[in-house]
Amino acid sequence: MFIKPLDKRIIAVTGHYGSGKTEFSVSLANLLAKEGDREYPRLALVDLDIANPYFRSRERKEELETLGIRVIGSAYDCEITAELPALSAAARGPLEDEGCRVIVDFGGNDAGALVLHQFRKYFQMDQHLMLAVVNASRAETRTIEGAMEHLAAIEYATGLPLDGLINNCHLLRETDADDVTRGHRFCEELGRKLALPVYCDCYPAPLVKAEDLHDIGPWAMPLGLYMRPSWLDKY
């Protein structure tokens, strides 16, 4: 396992857009699908992000489904491109199913996180973890104060306290191993202020080699750059 043990059934992933929460959610789903889980024979990835109508990937959905992951939500579907604040009722299925491990990827800001309210009852049964992905290179979350303000806004909007942080300090394809270290220090300090553990340090596997990582925590999670079309980096 590349991440501090996840001892709860539902893993809710939040973070600013650009934090990399969708890349993290997809990579985590891949990891859990490959490892298998006796306690939870089924695995679902539920995307509840209504804040971003762009950058959706049906290809990802097909790939994930071949791994046996049930995928629900707009980020993986190209048909719905209107900005309707509507979510599929199918999202409730995995949340109700006690034999299903669920990764919930939700809104990029407090407004996006608000949608989680209708699913609140599933988050009041001590069966979930709320993890926030933090990118210390994002303009608005690159200071401790900025990140605290942002995380507080998400907690306020959802009414749910966070359980841990995920370091994903990155500058897309310009990321290097030092960025990961810088992000780790940042998240450690942020975690001390908020009394939250750091669940893992993410690094972009196509750009940074695991052996080049230094001065980070015990869990290092490789991420793909799945959601971004390659031509966007031809500038």
């Binding site: 857009y17 994002r138 690159r142 310009e174």
Partner: peptide, 15 residues
């Protein structure tokens, strides 16, 4: 002069 990651629209408003 530090490089930061921004969404286009945010960067344009800030600029």
């Amino acid at each position: 002069s530090e490089k930061v990651l921004m969404k286009g629209n945010e960067a344009y408003a800030e600029a």
